[in-house]
Amino acid sequence: MTWLDVDQGDAPLIVAFPHAGTDLADVGDSFVSPWAARADADWWIDTLYGFARDLGATTIRTAISRSVIDVNRDPSGASLYPGQATTELCPTTSFDGAPLYRAPLPDAAEIGRRRTCWFDPYHAALTSEIDRLRAQHARVVLYDAHSIRSLVPRLFDGILPQFNIGTNFGTTCAPELSDEVARLCAASGLGHVVDGRFRGGWTTRHYGAPETGVHAIQMELAMRGYLHEPAHRDEGNWPPAIDLGHAQPVIAVLTDILKACRAFAQA
């Protein structure tokens, strides 16, 4: 499948990129604008973690835009954050609440089609890689890699910390793993929180089962750590290019984090 990239490694570590894609597939004409449909991608996140394969990690990336279908949402359509603003399995609005679609919105049949085309194969691949590595290792860490603008008033108050660790209140991984990740983030001085506004999406919550040897953790990065966010976005300035020089402090912390995840799984 050209839209799904799985690069296998032998370390007991999987790094998933569910929101790096910008491909609008066969529904591009349904959106108000292609730019709006792509604007909320986790821009350049797979490039930022380009070192992961050197650590022996398996990486999984979908090229399909989250606006087509969000592979990190509950496939039943249930909200991951009841009572809080969020986006759906097939989002109808942007993070800022602007409508994404021309009429009509995707109906149940269309959402089901998209699940069959993209959601189900993505998770079949992820399940297969977890099973493959669990056959070789007593423990596996699934690290779900995300990023978002530092300021999105509809979703959270104020400026987001640089590192946002999600474990669904300690249920998706062993505390010694989340404690070590938090320690590394704290040592950076860049700001972090555990189970704040982002406490893990469907992937983290669905696969994280420490009692079976699968430890899942989500990292949501504020984008200011690796690119220069404009005060106001438009088609002329968004997305900014990744600035790898500016990103070095964040990359150094992320490298230590993935090394710690690997060491935890190998212990």
Rank of each mutant, 00 (worst) to 15 (best):
Leu142Arg: 08
Thr204Gln: 12
Gly213Ala: 15
Ala182Val: 09
Gln136Met: 12
His146Asn: 03
Arg139Ser: 15
Ser147Cys: 10
Pro210Asp: 05
Asp179Cys: 14
Ala138Pro: 09
Arg199Trp: 15
Pro161Cys: 02
Asp144Tyr: 00
Thr212Gln: 13
Pro210Lys: 14
Arg197Met: 09
Asn164Thr: 10
Val141His: 07
Phe169Asp: 13
Ser188Glu: 00
Ala182Cys: 14
Gln162Tyr: 11
Tyr207Gly: 03
Tyr207His: 04
Ala135His: 12
Thr171Arg: 15
Val152Ile: 03
Thr212Ala: 12
Leu155Met: 00
Ser188Ile: 02
Thr212Arg: 12
Val141Tyr: 04
Val214Lys: 12
Gly158Asp: 04
Val140Ser: 09
Phe198Pro: 04
Ala135Leu: 09
Phe163Lys: 07
Val214Pro: 05
Ala209Val: 15
Arg139Glu: 14
Leu177Thr: 11
His137Arg: 12
Ser147Gly: 12
Ser150Cys: 01
Tyr143Cys: 04
Asp144Ala: 02
Leu155Asp: 00
Glu211Pro: 01
Thr203Cys: 11
His146Cys: 09
Ala209Gln: 15
Gly201Cys: 02
Gly213Met: 10
Val193Asn: 08
Glu211Lys: 07
Gly201Thr: 06
Ala145Met: 13
Thr212Val: 11
Val141Trp: 03
Gln162Pro: 10
Gly213Lys: 11
Cys185Ser: 10
Leu184Lys: 05
Arg183Trp: 02
Asn168Cys: 14
Gly213Leu: 10
Arg154Val: 00
Ile148Tyr: 06
Leu190Thr: 03
Asp179Glu: 12
Pro210Trp: 13
Ala187Ile: 04
Leu184Arg: 02
Gly170Pro: 05
Leu160Asn: 08
Trp202Ser: 02
Trp202Pro: 05
Thr203His: 03
Pro175His: 09
Arg197Asp: 02
Asp157Gln: 10
Asp157Ala: 11
Cys173Asn: 07
Ala174Trp: 12
His137Cys: 14
Ala209Phe: 13
Asp144Leu: 06
Tyr143Glu: 08
Leu177Gln: 11
Arg197Asn: 10
Asp144Thr: 04
Arg197Leu: 07
Trp202His: 05
Pro210Gln: 11
Arg149Val: 02
Gly189Met: 07
Gln136Ser: 14
Val140Ile: 13
His192Asn: 05
Ala186Val: 10
Val181Met: 03
Gly213Glu: 09
Cys185Trp: 08
Arg183Lys: 12
His192Pro: 05
Thr204Met: 11
Trp202Lys: 05
His206Glu: 06
His206Gly: 01
Ala182Tyr: 06
Ala187Arg: 08
Thr203Lys: 04
Gly200His: 07
Asn164Lys: 05
Glu180Ala: 15
Leu151Ile: 10
Val194Cys: 02
Thr172His: 01
Phe169Glu: 14
Thr204Trp: 07
Glu176Ser: 15
